[in-house]
Computed example of a mutant assay.
Amino acid sequence: MTVASRRPPEALAPQARAIGPTVVARSLRDALEADMIILAVPFEQHPEVARALPDWKGKTVIDAMNSLAPLEEMDGLLSSAFAAKAFAGARFVKAFNHLIAATLATDPVVEGGHRVVFLSSDDADATAPVAALARQLGFAPVTLGKLYEGGALVHARGRVWGPLIFQDVFKTAQ
Rank of each mutant, 00 (worst) to 15 (best):
L133P: 00
Y148L: 10
D107S: 14
V109F: 08
A50Q: 04
L153C: 02
D35F: 01
R7S: 10
Y148I: 11
T2D: 10
A134T: 07
L77Q: 15
S79G: 13
D55S: 06
L39Q: 06
R6K: 10
T22S: 15
A16W: 02
T143R: 11
E111K: 09
L147Y: 01
A105I: 11
V49F: 02
L137I: 12
V41S: 15
T60K: 09
E33Y: 01
K171D: 03
P108K: 09
E44V: 12
L71N: 07
A124F: 02
A124L: 10
Q174V: 10
A124W: 00
L164A: 00
S80E: 00
L119E: 10
A126I: 03
F43I: 08
H114D: 03
L133I: 13
A134C: 05
T106P: 14
K59A: 03
G58A: 06
D75A: 15
L133G: 08
I19L: 15
L144D: 00
A132W: 06
P21F: 02
E72A: 15
N66D: 12
A95L: 04
A124T: 02
P8C: 05
V23Q: 12
G150I: 07
M36Q: 13
L71T: 14
L164E: 00
T60A: 04
L28A: 15
A13W: 05
A140E: 11
P42T: 02
K57F: 03
Q45H: 11
H114I: 00
